[in-house]
């Protein structure tokens, strides 16, 4: 199944931002391999439209099952014979005061948001290093840059993604691989769907550009980092937050 199409792996690519990333990469003519814990209407429709998995491949994987992540990437390499891009998008958030948080909720956030990204990245490097080319985009959060009550563990994992980005960029840059990071601010998504109108209005008031972000705002930054226009950019983070953290 090898051809000239570039191949991207997207973690958590079945709904919300992940779905939008997958759709955008497909629109750009890339082949996309994605996984998430469970199928969605989006993945089912995509698979039905492409039963041989020529441009879209999806598997059900729990991100905390680390050996499965390596197997997924090896499967992608066998199927498409290349991996050109990785978007570490998958994340989970359990809100609550750290003093009251259950062990399981701490563990799951660290496993899904950070450890899984590290294992997945390592597996993808096995495909990128032989090609001496590749681009990795890690999804962080404005919570990595500014403190908020109730998200200490989530913030810690997202700040770690920034550290991972910077050190790995230095490490694999000589191998032709770029590593960058996008830190979304509050944007209209499942994550903010539970916010009251008053909360949303307050966020917009505190944002210099006076609105919440959109999924397209975030996807545009990811598209840029993966594009040839960013060929000389690595180890960098763009906060897509309307100036919220300025």
């Amino acid at each position: 199944m090898s051809d000239d199409r570039r191949v991207a792996i997207v973690s958590g690519g079945s709904r919300g931002l992940g779905q939008a990333i997958v759709e955008d990469l497909l629109k750009q003519g890339m082949t996309v391999a994605a996984f998430s814990r469970s199928a969605t209407r989006f993945t089912e429709e995509r698979q039905a439209a492409d039963p041989k998995g020529e441009s879209f491949y999806w598997e059900a994987i729990d991100g905390s099952d680390f050996p499965r992540l390596g197997e997924f990437v090896r499967g992608v390499l066998r199927r498409y014979e290349r991996v050109d891009a990785l978007v570490n998008n998958m994340a989970t958030m359990s809100e609550g005061l750290l003093a009251l948080m259950r062990d399981a909720d701490i563990h799951r956030q660290v496993a899904m948001n950070l450890e899984a990204a590290i294992y997945l990245t390592r597996a993808c490097l096995k495909g990128m290093l032989p090609q001496a080319a590749g681009s990795i985009v890690n999804i962080a959060s404005v919570n990595a840059l500014r403190g908020h009550t109730g998200v200490a563990v989530y913030s810690a994992t997202k700040a770690a993604m920034v550290g991972l980005t910077k050190s790995l960029a230095v490490e694999v840059g000589p191998g032709g691989i770029r590593v960058n990071c996008v830190a979304p601010g509050y944007f209209q998504s499942e994550m903010t769907s539970g916010f009251s109108d008053e909360q949303l209005a307050r966020i917009a008031r505190r944002t210099p550009l006076r609105r919440l972000g959109t999924v397209e705002d975030i996807v545009a930054a990811i598209r840029f980092f993966l594009s040839p226009q960013a060929a000389f950019i690595t180890g960098q983070m763009i906060a897509v937050d309307g100036g919220f953290t300025s």
């Binding site: 390499l77 490097l125 096995k126 495909g127 290093l129 032989p130 490490e171 000589p174 191998g175």
Partner: peptide, 13 residues
């Protein structure tokens, strides 16, 4: 060391 990583990655493939 990165060259060694490349060699090992190629051999794994």
């Amino acid at each position: 060391s990165l060259d060694l990583a490349r060699i090992i990655a190629k051999l794994e493939v």
